[in-house]
């Protein structure tokens, strides 16, 4: 058993903090993008317009059957090719995450929209609201409210997933930890520290979900 040297963490803290900021930023932007696109996909699937519903369903099922790493590789390869110029790792990763997570968020939003009683939609129609007004003022606010705990849980999973940008060497918290681990030769300390940081953040998140759930139950 090697002697532990936890000083290495202290001295590399600024570098690790930069990585963590990138992880959090990527998580936040992907959650926003994922929920917006996911909601649109859910609306498309429930729209009753067959071609739209089929396209959305195919997209969601396709994305849900491939691993995130493969999707990240896809977009690292595709985005520069489609745009004709490189746009940097962060944006490629962001596009991959938004498109990937949207499939999962759309399933959550679909359940949320279906949890709103039909009578609400009928009431909206009889008051003369248009389709988009009904969605905007009646259905979606309630759907969001019902799904908040699950949306947050998915956010925690997404935060854990951002560690996978390691495969394209984007400097998030995981990649930063691993760089320090290798250059300082302190694999044990750094990976245990990384685990601890992820644990504290995700565990706090799941406590938040628990309190949200109990508050909604009352």
């Amino acid at each position: 058993m090697t002697d532990f040297d936890f000083n290495v963490i202290w001295s590399s803290l600024p570098f690790l903090w930069q990585g963590l900021q990138l992880s959090l930023l990527l998580t936040l932007l992907s959650i926003i993008g994922g929920i917006v696109l996911g909601t649109l996909l859910a609306l498309a699937r429930l729209s009753g317009i067959a071609p739209l519903a089929i396209v959305a369903a195919t997209y969601v099922n396709l994305i849900r059957s491939v691993p995130l790493i493969l999707v990240i590789f896809w977009f690292y390869f595709l985005v520069p090719l489609a745009l004709g110029r490189p746009i940097g790792g962060f944006y490629s990763a962001l596009i991959a995450f938004v498109l990937f997570e949207a499939a999962y968020y759309s399933e959550i939003m679909r359940a949320g929209i279906q949890s709103v009683k039909r009578g609400q939609v009928h009431a909206g129609q009889s008051t003369g609201l248009s389709y988009w007004q009904i969605q905007r003022y009646v259905v979606l606010p309630q759907a969001f409210r019902n799904m908040v705990p699950i949306l947050v849980t998915q956010g925690i999973i997404l935060f854990q997933d951002t560690s996978l940008v390691f495969v394209v060497s984007l400097r998030d918290f995981m990649t930063a930890s691993s760089i320090v681990a290798r250059t300082e030769g302190r694999l044990v300390e750094m990976y245990l520290f990384a685990a601890l940081v992820y644990f504290v953040i995700c565990f706090s998140g799941s406590m938040l979900v628990r309190s949200l759930k109990s508050r909604m139950a009352t």
Partner: peptide, 18 residues
């Protein structure tokens, strides 16, 4: 559940033998 699988993978591979 609260530690990313990637970190767990690295711990088993790099840290546990040490």
């Amino acid at each position: 559940r609260n530690v990313p699988l990637l970190v767990q993978m690295f711990i088993w591979y790099f840290a546990v033998p040490e």
